[in-house]
Amino acid sequence: MTEVSQITAPSGVAVDFGGTKISATRLVNGAPQDSLKVATDGTASAAEQVAAICDLLDQLALQPQEVVGVALAGRVDREGCWHALNTETLSDVQAVPLRAMLSERLARPVAVQNDAVAAAIGEYHFGAGQGCRDFAFLTVSTGVGGGLVLDGRPVISARGLAGHVGFTTSTLGDRRCGTGRMNTVESRASGRAIAHYAAEMGQDGLTAKDVFEAHLAGKDWASELIATSAQAVAELIGNLTSLLDLDRVAIGGSIGMAEGYLDQVRAHLAAEPAIFRPDVVPVALRAEAAHVGVLTLR
């Protein structure tokens, strides 16, 4: 585990590189001032992905004195190298020395970290994790990710794998996910999974957002898919709590924050014995959690 060296509200420019979009935000004392975003091209080369990050920073008119942090989908190891875990999300990112590349290109030190780990740090210090010691952040979006803060310290491992809770197995899983593992939480609960199972039901060409809208419109097939996703996440929370004795879990992401989803997770979790039911809350910082967290690491 690594101590967070700074817990005052950060200032600087942060990039959040996710499975569907890349956003860059200027923060002043933790408050967003300017923000830009573009769609992620999951098939782009590593060099093109780095160029996309730098283009956003250029568009925000990055200043020489500003600190920079980058939060990313995938593993970030202790040397600052970036590795995709799910090749369905990023197909050509392996062992990219991102911290060194960006630090040289931008002529300053650049913090790089997994996006969910960064979001966990942001939420722990400035959002939904305040006041507890053992905390997990879960994002349910294109994929399922997580970050952990235990005994007040973020869990950051040498290979950058710690916190990738979406790649643990689920009793509801029945297929291989993009990591090569079978029956993972991500392969059952994520936005990509929801779209996959919708197509299996004959609902071709729909996104997870489309499925959620169908669920809210009362379509039984869509409600079944959303309920299964929420059940898989509830099972994950129970499993994590049995291992880590969590006080609180905050849920974010486009699906995690969608109307009624958190209530479904709580309802499924209620079937667990009380000791396996931590406090489950929505994220407080929403889309800014990773931005705040990665700059806190600076």
Results as ranks from 00 to 15, higher is better:
Val112Lys: 03
Val281Trp: 10
Ile194Lys: 09
Ala232Gln: 01
Leu225Ile: 02
Val13Gly: 06
Pro10Met: 08
Glu66Asp: 08
Val294Lys: 02
Ser242Tyr: 05
Gly163Glu: 05
Glu235Ile: 04
Leu102Ser: 08
Ile251Trp: 14
Gly178Ser: 10
Leu262Met: 14
Leu72Ile: 13
Ala289His: 08
Glu104Pro: 06
Ser190Asp: 02
Asp247Trp: 13
Ala46Cys: 13
Ser91Tyr: 04
Val280Gln: 15
Tyr197Lys: 02
Phe137Ser: 06
Ser170Cys: 09
Ser103Phe: 00
Gly80Lys: 01
Tyr124Phe: 10
His164Arg: 07
Ile275Cys: 12
Glu224Ile: 14
Ala47Gln: 13
Cys81Pro: 04
Arg192Gln: 14
Gly191Cys: 05
Asn86Lys: 04
Gly147Trp: 02
Leu138Glu: 01
Phe276His: 15
Ser187Val: 11
Thr87Ile: 13
Ser242Arg: 02
Leu106Ile: 03
Tyr197Thr: 02
Gln94His: 13
His125Arg: 06
Asp134Arg: 11
Glu123Val: 07
Leu148Glu: 01
Phe126Val: 02
Arg298Gln: 05
Ile226Cys: 02
Leu62His: 05
Gly145Arg: 01
Glu48Cys: 02
Asn86Val: 05
Arg175Thr: 15
Thr25Tyr: 07
Tyr124Trp: 01
Leu90Thr: 14
Ala287Ile: 00
Ile275Thr: 12
Gly180Lys: 15
Glu88Pro: 05
Ala162Ile: 04
Ser223Glu: 15
Tyr197Ala: 02
Gly166Cys: 03
Ala73Met: 08
Asn239Val: 04
Glu88Phe: 15
Ala158Trp: 15
Val70Met: 14
Ala73Lys: 08
Gln231Cys: 11
Glu123Cys: 14
Leu150Gln: 00
Ala258Lys: 03
Glu79Trp: 04
Thr139Val: 03
Pro109Tyr: 00
Ala195Asn: 09
Arg248Ser: 00
